[in-house]
Structure formats: structure tokens, C-alpha cells
Design a binder for these strands. Structure first.
Lengths: 176, 176
DNA sequence: CATAATTTTCATTAAATACTGAAAATACAG
DNA sequence: CTGTATTTTCAGTATTTAATGAAAATTATG
């Protein structure tokens, strides 16, 4: 085993724990454990990594590493990097927290809010001219949900498109 | 088959679609399909329902209906109701959208934000006095995440504890 | 107390999701 | 073109999560 300072070892342990736990959290957030682990690994890596390094670090299969890297690039949380004179693809994570937040917010809106909103639109529309008391009650409830979710959708857009500084300013006002 | 007005049938179809689709959405939100379906069913039901009615409406098993009803009561999205002269337990959903929102926000914070925050706290703490450049970079990245997530946590609390009207006022300001 | 209605539990089964590893496809260098 | 490094795909397997249904426990009723 390589000789190393106690400090280096402590750092390694902290990193490993971070990666392992971030992976576990990922499953709570609806993304696969490996995807969250790769994200954690790259967020704290001082340099871009290639597929084999990721595989080794996480003891994951090639297919798994590959598809999750692709997915992360898709989300925009990770960028592919070309290093000249090297045929391999390298990957590095977006590290700015506000960027990370807006990317995740956009994705969640797309997956969680928009489909709900379109369902609510449809149900409200389909029942808007029914006259029975029961139908009116249904229409009313759906309408309330529709308005709220529509609101949430707009809010999400607005906040995501803010500059970090401006958002911070707004947040400070709310927290004060 | 029972004779019914066209209107009644249209309403029934809209309800069925709403329940089915809300269930499908539930899986995106990290809750089981049945739980989301029961929630939808009760949100649009004009009266409280007993376990057997829920089972029948959703073609779900007793155990499934039971455990998901229990879970919904646990969240606070559904209340158990006692009807005198009837031994069965009845259930009714919270219908106020702002209430629904705050309940879900609280639960999500508990499951998604708090564990992340405690991990970040721990990792920042464990590396705060390491001096290598690599350690400092790690500590710095974790710290940034910690600050942001801590911020999000406070925001979530603040907004959830607002009265609907006040939140609306705030939102209007942001959207304007 | 006996019994009937209802709720609760839980071992088993089914369904959904994530991962593996090897083979096929692609890209590049000589 | 040929051989090699690398990426991509995907059928098969493993893991995780949700649902079933029947049995046990509980609760009310006469």
C-alpha cells in the first residue's frame, strides 16, 4: 500500500463518504444511485475524468458508467471535454451551485410539473360545461389545482432565469 | 348496465382519467402509484370513502389500499373520519391547495433536503482544517453546496409557514 | 362470552428499475 | 486497409420496490 500522510487519508475518506452518501440520496431524488455518485465524484474532482477512471473509482460496469455519464451530459450537469493527443472522452461537472440548481429545477419542472399541468388543463376543459352539482365540484377542485400548479410553473421559470445575485437578494428579503 | 345521462358518463370518464393519470404522475414524484391514485380519488370525491369503496374503485387489494391510506393519513393529506353508527373507518382528503402544497413541501424537505444538508455539514466539518490544495478545493465545494442547501431549507420553511394570501402576494411580486 | 365485522400484518409474488459484461460499432493511427 | 483503442448498445441478470391475499388481531354487538 502506498505511503501517505494522515491528512491525505482523511481527505480520501471524506470524499468516499460524500460520494457514497450522495449516491444514496440520489435514489430519494428519483435518479439512479450511480448517476448521483458520478455527479458527486465529478463535482469534487479537481480535474476532468475519463470513463475508466469513473468505473474504477465507483466499481461500476462500463455500460453503467457510460449510460449515466451520457445522462448527466444530457441534463447539462456534466460536460464532455476533449484533451488533445488523447483519444478518450473526459468529463467534468458544472460546479457553480446556482447553475446546478437551475438545471435541476428545469428538469424537475419538465418531469413533475408540466405533465401534471397538462392533465389538469385537460380535465378542467373536458368538464367546463357540465352542469350537475357533482360535476361542478369536480371542475372546481381541478381548476384550483390547475391554477396553483400553473403558478408554481411560472415561479419556477422566473427564479431559474434569475442571475444568482438577484435571486439571493430576493431570498434575503423573504428570509428577513 | 345502469342507465345514466351522457353528462354523468362524461364526468365519470374525466374522473377516471384524472385518477389514472395522477397515479402515473405519482411514480415520477417518488410515491407509489396506488398512493397517488387514492389521493386523487379522495381529492375529487364529494364525500368520505371507506376502504372497500377505495379498493373497488381502484381495483386494488385490501392490503395495498390499507397501507397507502395509512401513509396518506401519515402525511396529513388524508384524514380518518368516524361516522356514527358505522364501524368502518372513512377517509377524506385535504382539499385546500395551499395546505396540500405545504404538506408536500414539508415532506420533501424532510426526505430530500435535510439528509443532504447533514451530509454536507459533516463533510465540511471533517475537512475544515486540512491544508493541502486538494483538500481546500474539496472543502470549498462542499461548503458552497452546504450554504446553498441550507438556504433552500430555510426558504422552504418560510414559505410553508406563510398564510396562503401572503404567499400569493409575494409570488405576485416575483411574477410581475 | 361468542360471533361477526373490520382492520392490520406479512410472507409471497409480481412489476419496475438498475446494472453487468460481452459483442458490435466507431474512430483513429500507422 | 489493418489493427487497436474506445465508445455504444443491449440481452440477460440482479436488485429494489410495490401489490396481493389470506391469516391473525382487533373491535364492536347482542
Amino acid at each position: 500500500m502506498k505511503i501517505m500522510k494522515v491528512e491525505t487519508n482523511r481527505l480520501g475518506q471524506a470524499k468516499d463518504e460524500f460520494i457514497a452518501q450522495w449516491g444514496a440520496l440520489g435514489t430519494q431524488w428519483g435518479i439512479s444511485r450511480t448517476m448521483a455518485q458520478i455527479h458527486a465524484l465529478l463535482m469534487i474532482s479537481p480535474r476532468a475524468m475519463c470513463t475508466d477512471e469513473v468505473m474504477e473509482e465507483l466499481a461500476a460496469s462500463r455500460g453503467n458508467a457510460h449510460s449515466n455519464l451520457k445522462e448527466l451530459v444530457n441534463w447539462g450537469l456534466v460536460r464532455m471535454i476533449v484533451i488533445k493527443g488523447d483519444r478518450r472522452d473526459f468529463y467534468e461537472a458544472e460546479k457553480d451551485v446556482w447553475q446546478i440548481f437551475t438545471i435541476i429545477a428545469r428538469e424537475r419542472k419538465r418531469r413533475e410539473i408540466e405533465p401534471a399541468l397538462s392533465l389538469l388543463n385537460k380535465c378542467a376543459e373536458e368538464t367546463k360545461d357540465l352542469r350537475s352539482a357533482e360535476a361542478k365540484a369536480f371542475h372546481n377542485q381541478v381548476k384550483q389545482l390547475e391554477e396553483f400548479v400553473g403558478f408554481a410553473s411560472k415561479m419556477s421559470d422566473r427564479i431559474s432565469s434569475m442571475k444568482h445575485g438577484l435571486a439571493l437578494q430576493l431570498a434575503t428579503k423573504i428570509l428577513s
